[in-house]
């Protein structure tokens, strides 16, 4: 369960990017986090992972991310949009990272590497942007943590890879897990997410399951709903 109550954060004093965000995201869902540029989607994920320290009450799995306790960090895995590309291979990186995550699964790692067709022993710096992204996603899926936060995961991926991405995320998911994916590219998450969260400058505009979307907006098309929600907001 992810719970935020008046979560506020700003990179510059008196200019909050996120202002009093209150949200409750139960476990067992794959969430799509949508919003325009600059509304704070990446910031939100960083706050939940404990790499940024916000104000207000918020918890992930009942633990306060700000304390950065190893017991908490073992349960979450964040893939930032601009993750550092290390001068090493994904195989070597997995060998170093795996002891830090008790739930790490070498089977999932091998499967993801094979599905994505990534040269596992080649240095990440020698791979293309799309391949780097796929390698890092494979590693994060293999960490097999109850909470997985992906920030713009499909950036730089080709169309077949996006399909494989959806398949791998779906297969790595179970009812005990929470996957939160932030993206601009709604189509890339089609058929994968079962819950939509739309952020605006003034906070969360919508948090709803796909089923509820149909009842409320008469459509389950996320693009359509996104346009309706954000247009309503600009008209207000």
């Amino acid at each position: 369960m992810i719970q935020t109550n008046n979560l506020t954060y700003g990179y510059v004093k008196h200019q909050p990017v996120l202002k009093e965000i209150s949200l409750s995201l139960p476990a067992g869902h794959i969430y799509g986090l949508f919003g325009k540029n600059g509304v704070g989607k990446s910031t939100f994920l960083k706050l939940l992972s404990g790499t940024l320290l916000g104000q207000g009450d918020y918890s992930v799995g009942g633990l306060d991310p700000r304390k950065r306790e190893p017991g908490f960090q073992e349960q979450i895995r964040l893939v930032p949009e601009n993750e550092a590309i290390l001068n090493t291979s994904i195989q070597e990186l997995s060998e170093v990272i795996s002891p830090l995550y008790p739930t790490f699964s070498h089977e999932i790692f091998q499967k993801a590497i094979e599905e994505f067709d990534i040269p596992a022993t080649q240095k990440l710096t020698h791979l293309s942007l799309g391949q780097q992204k796929k390698a890092l996603i494979s590693l994060s899926l293999a960490c097999n943590t109850p909470y997985l936060f992906l920030d713009e995961p499909t950036n730089g991926m080709d169309i077949p890879s996006k399909r494989i991405f959806r398949k791998l995320v779906a297969s790595a998911f179970d009812e005990k897990k929470t996957i939160l994916i932030s993206t601009h590219q709604v189509d890339d998450l089609e058929g994968l997410i079962d819950w939509v969260v739309i952020m605006e400058n003034d906070g969360i505009r919508l948090s709803s399951s796909l089923e509820e979307l149909g009842e409320r907006f008469g459509t389950e098309d996320i693009k359509e709903v996104f346009c309706q929600v954000t247009e309503n907001n600009s008209n207000e």
Binding site: K46, R68, Q73, L78, P80, A84, I97, L100, Y101
Partner: peptide, 18 residues
């Protein structure tokens, strides 16, 4: 890694107490 904007994000999220 501790100071670089990109690597620090990854490093801070790695399991390990202060």
């Amino acid at each position: 890694k501790f100071c670089n904007p990109k690597t620090s994000t990854t490093y801070l999220a790695l399991p390990g107490s202060n």
